[in-house]
Design a binder for these strands. Structure first.
Lengths: 253, 253
DNA sequence: TCGTTTATGTTCGCTTTTGCTCGAAATCGA
DNA sequence: TCGATTTCGAGCAAAAGCGAACATAAACGA
């Protein structure tokens, strides 16, 4: 199969938009419709896209709608938080990336970091970082959770215990006023706790929607975190607690 | 300015821009197009870049040409073998699926089996079986091998040891005349051996091309297998040995 | 210093890509 | 259901890009 500059770009656009049109791409690249059609035909032959009249869509199957919607939630601030977080991850270190859409955004920002060792219990993150050939990827074992591609359970915990990370990047479902991190899934809590225990530094990436929500399972106190990346100021009481604990808060946007 | 000076620079530009053009680089370095072409050819041969008409792009880890080609090889008999193998896997049992294009084909045939517990060290298989909501998927941990999505290493072996499978489905790189299963990758051998040790029954899926090939690392003897699924009769001597060992041979097509 | 190796420049057919045209197929609206 | 419109893919010619071969210049080693 032949290769063009356009192919990777087309795929990226398709991933972002969910679909591409022949006309739109032709204008975007400044080439004729015919050329784009040829591109799409080739990409479809390679099973990278699925051809439809007037354009192409992502190949069906693996996508989880509910999850995809969540992924698109709050996209701009998620990107900004991810960028800020990635900026504090030096090259050449060992990183754990936990389940979650926010941590996936961080993974995307790590695509050009060099010499990382990334351990993850998130299949999506492994798939994202495959493109960064300058980083070693280790996948923890575990039971595959279809809803979000996460790996959870005892196997996951046992594997994580075999490592010591320079930095762990985690998300959470909710944050309590008293500084506790909460999660919906009890299975994930054990994993998150183990991650925190095995890491020198721990970064939390969580947007403001987590402030006003609650969840049943307690992961840990924010005292255990080095830095929190978020998009709106923390409630005053919580901000004061973080200051006392030495937990940095990085505000983006 | 010599070649050795340009190469790292070219890579740096490629990392930053995502792509490089022959013309742009020629101007940037003040050399002729031909010189840049030579540079890019060398970088592409070293898998640092991917050559395209007019320049080069970052290698996309997901597109492993060699692997994609291998996947398309012998497709019809691969499908037939996979179908025969899946037919002998009862519903409601625990199955291990190893790395390999043949085992992936088996996974596709298992999409409508119910109540399976599938353990795999192959990311592709996990992605395939996500669509079968009636089966539990467990992914072993391990280092991700970009070339084929396989998970290998000690973590993988440790995880596998925690299970006992009703059936294991494995592939191999080659089969020796004396009935030994061989593999190219020494890291994969330990994994395969552990799989065999932890399984009540072991199925091998391997087309005839494996008969006339050789590989350096020994996995096990075919004596350890319950059944072999293949597309052409085994060499006579090997067939006799299998009969002695009680290893069934299932011929498809 | 001289011969050898390596990097670069130049030229020239050859291949790939692109744009264009046209008949066929798919989609849409009534 | 049928016709109008859009989209598609094949074939062809022009243009851009390519690699091979050879010449030249610089770097290297004895």
């Amino acid at each position: 199969m032949s290769q063009t500059f356009r192919h990777p770009d087309i795929l990226k656009i398709a991933q972002r938009e969910g679909k591409v049109t022949v006309e739109g791409l032709a204008e975007h690249f400044g080439v004729t419709l015919q050329t784009i059609r040829r591109d799409l035909t080739e990409l479809a032959e390679a099973n990278k896209l699925e051809r439809v009249h007037g354009g192409a869509i992502l190949p069906s199957g693996t996508t989880n709608i509910e999850y995809d919607e969540r992924r698109n939630l709050n996209q701009s601030s998620k990107l900004a938080m991810a960028r800020a977080c990635a900026a504090q991850i030096p090259e050449g270190c060992s990183v754990f990336l936990n389940i979650g859409t926010s941590t996936e955004a961080v993974a995307r920002e790590l695509l050009h970091h060099r010499d990382l060792m990334v351990v993850t219990n998130n299949m999506n993150i492994a798939n994202i970082l495959v493109d960064n050939t300058d980083c070693q990827i280790i996948v923890t074992g575990g039971a595959l959770r279809r809803s979000d591609g996460g790996l959870v359970g005892n196997i996951t915990i046992d594997t994580i215990r075999q490592f010591k990370f320079d930095i762990a990047v985690i998300g959470c479902s909710a944050m309590d006023e008293d500084g506790d991190l909460l999660d919906f899934d009890i299975h994930e809590v054990g994993v998150s706790q183990t991650i925190i225990a095995q890491s020198r530094k721990c970064f939390l990436v969580a947007d403001h929607s987590k402030f006003s929500r609650t969840a049943p399972a307690r992961i840990a106190s924010m005292r255990a975190l080095s830095t929190v990346f978020t998009d709106l100021p923390l409630p005053r009481e919580l901000a004061e607690r973080c200051a006392t604990w030495g937990t940095q808060v990085v505000l983006v946007d």
